[in-house]
Amino acid sequence: MGITVLAIDDDPVNLKLAAEVLQADGHDVIRAADAEQALRLLDQHAPDLVLTDIAMPGMSGLELTRRLKADPRYRHLPVVAMTASAMKGDESRILEAGCDAYLAKPLDTRRLAMQITAILADHRQPGRKA
């Protein structure tokens, strides 16, 4: 049961890693190098989930999330953040921006696919936490 993930990271190696790991588990991955490209790709594809880096030049992952959550077309699309930062306050900033979950970098490649599908399942469950 493959899902379609829109993965966004300005670091090409990290973008490739996330995509390869998910594809190896049988999922489809649309790759975007920045938030602007991601917004364009959203119109052409209909991903089940967005997996985005936070610190990116131009529009940040947080800003992208805010836009998606403010747009009626994408409001219900789950957004998962990836961050290499671990400072106090990062977690709350990520959740306040509207992200549904976040993963710390380095990603755990052996659990990434499982984590993503679990988040998606949790998101689709009726009566979940708003």
């Binding site: 190696v13 790991v21 970098k105 990603l107």
Partner: peptide, 15 residues
């Protein structure tokens, strides 16, 4: 900054 490239090193090694 150091964690970002490590994500690639560790991740692809495991992969």
């Amino acid at each position: 900054e150091l964690r970002t490239p490590l994500n690639g090193i560790i991740g692809f090694s495991e992969f």
